[in-house]
């Protein structure tokens, strides 16, 4: 039983670090800020969640604190990615030339603001 738990924990840690690396790779390689957001928030969120769950399973006494950490990540990461996307659109960051859809153009709420 304990061996199984440790195996699951190790697998989760490996998956987590792999996804953290892939997220950073996406942030480095993708062409514009909207594409980078995809990798920079979704992939790293999954990576951090599974890594923290793996650490919590490897050391079961830490599991409550690890769950609180996961809750915080789940609450904060989507909000910050939304804020970055909205800020870059409002500040006039152009879309990559390969992008084909821009639904936000049709709404008044997307006009505005500062400088990139």
């Amino acid at each position: 039983m304990n061996l199984l738990l440790q195996g699951v924990a190790g697998t989760l840690i490996l998956i987590g670090s792999l996804f953290l690396f892939l997220g950073a790779l996406g942030v480095y390689r993708f062409p514009d800020v909207y594409n980078r957001l995809q990798a920079g928030t979704k992939s790293t969120t999954l990576g951090a969640l599974s890594l923290i769950l793996g650490v919590g399973l490897a050391e079961p006494a830490w599991l409550p604190k690890a769950l609180v950490l996961m809750l915080f990540i789940l609450l904060t990461n989507p909000v910050s990615s939304h804020a970055i996307g909205r800020a870059s659109y409002k500040s006039g960051y152009p879309l990559w030339e390969g992008s084909i859809v821009d639904h936000c153009q049709e709404h008044d709420a997307c006009k505005g603001g500062g400088e990139a």
Binding site: L75, T76, P78, V79, H82, A83, R86, G112, G114
Partner: peptide, 20 residues
């Protein structure tokens, strides 16, 4: 002249996160 108002998502999330 004008300020961009905060978005709905930010306001709602703040209501949850502020006490936490």
């Amino acid at each position: 002249r004008t300020k961009t108002p905060p978005s709905l998502i930010m306001r709602t999330a703040t209501r949850i996160l502020f006490p936490l």
